[in-house]
C-alpha cells in the first residue's frame, strides 16, 4: 500500500493505493473521478489526459506511486470549475464538438492546456496541440472551431 498527500483539483487529499496502480486507476477507482477515461491504455488516444504540476500528461502512462506528496493534479472535474474551463465547455456545445462524448474530457483538458499557454492560437497551433487526442465521431473541425471560439471570448 502506498500513502500520498496530493493536491487534487485544488483540494489536499490523503489517499492510499496499490504499488502497481496507474494514476488513471487511482483517479477512477480510488477517487471516483471518472471523467478521465481509458481509451487505449497505451498513450495513443488522449482520453486519459490530465494536468500534473502544470504539464499535460497521460494518466495511463503514469505510475501513481512515483508522484510524491505535494503533487498538483488537475482533472476534467477541476477544469470544469474554472472560468477558462467553463468557456471551453460552452464553446464545445455551441459548435457541436461533442457527439458520443468519449473523447471530450481529454479534448477539453488538451484545449485548456493550450489556451492556458497561448491566448490566441492559430489553426496550425491548435491542430498540433490536439494531435494526441483521437475522436471517432466529429471529424475534428467542430473541435478546432470550439477552441477558436473559446479563445476569442472573455
Amino acid at each position: 500500500m502506498i500513502k500520498r498527500k496530493w493536491n487534487i483539483n485544488g483540494k489536499i487529499q490523503n489517499i492510499q493505493f496499490e504499488e502497481d496502480q496507474r494514476l488513471l486507476d487511482v483517479l477512477r477507482d480510488v477517487l471516483d473521478l471518472t471523467g478521465t477515461k481509458e481509451g487505449c491504455g497505451e498513450g495513443e488516444c488522449g482520453t486519459c489526459s490530465v494536468i500534473i504540476n502544470g504539464e499535460l500528461k497521460l494518466a495511463c502512462l503514469q505510475l501513481a506511486a512515483v508522484l510524491p506528496d505535494g503533487t498538483d493534479i488537475l482533472t476534467i472535474e477541476g477544469v470544469e470549475k474554472t472560468s477558462l474551463g467553463k468557456r471551453i465547455q460552452r464553446s464545445f456545445i455551441e459548435t457541436n464538438a461533442v457527439q458520443c462524448g468519449f473523447c471530450t474530457p481529454g479534448m477539453i483538458i488538451a484545449s485548456f492546456y493550450l489556451l492556458s499557454n497561448h491566448k490566441k492560437p492559430d489553426r496550425k497551433t491548435i491542430k498540433r496541440a490536439l494531435s494526441g487526442n483521437l475522436c471517432r465521431c466529429t471529424g475534428y473541425n467542430s473541435i478546432f472551431e470550439a477552441i477558436e471560439l473559446a479563445s476569442g471570448r472573455k
Partner: peptide, 27 residues
C-alpha cells in the same frame, strides 16, 4: 529503471505483466 514511463507503461499494459522491482528516477 523507470524514467518518463512512456515506453515501459505501454509495454506493461500490453503484456499484462509488471516487473517485481522498479526504481524510478523521476525525483
Amino acid at each position: 529503471i523507470l524514467a518518463g514511463g512512456t515506453d515501459l507503461l505501454a509495454q506493461w499494459h500490453n503484456n499484462k505483466i509488471m516487473p517485481n522491482k522498479i526504481i524510478s528516477i523521476s525525483m
